[in-house]
Amino acid sequence: MPSTEVFLKIGLNHYLFLSAILFSFGMIAVLMRKNVIVMLMGIELMLNAVNLSFIAFAKELGNLNGQIMVFFVMTIAAAEAGVGLALAVSVYKKYKELNIRSFEQLRG
């Protein structure tokens, strides 16, 4: 029976769908939230969704290069979180709030 086969045989596409849903959630957080730190969390969510699709393809193709790429993406994501949080701290020192609107008032 092919109809239940699609749902029961977990393959590449199921993981790609999960990855697409998580990526969309992260993107909605970046577009819609006001808080800078929650926007950074949305970026982390998007990076993790991409990592998931890399690993799903690595499993499907039996090729370890995808996992190496995930390793590099994780390192760069950690560095990016550090830089973003340092910028948030320095903006908070000046404006005493974490709204993304306060970035509009930066003057040197």
Binding site: L12, F17, M27, L31, M32, E60
Partner: peptide
């Protein structure tokens, strides 16, 4: 956001049988 989510899901749908 809806358009981009649609693109992501559509790409996942179109990738059926890519491997």
């Amino acid at each position: 956001a809806a358009i981009l989510a649609g693109f992501a899901l559509g790409a996942a749908t179109n990738s059926i049988g890519i491997v």
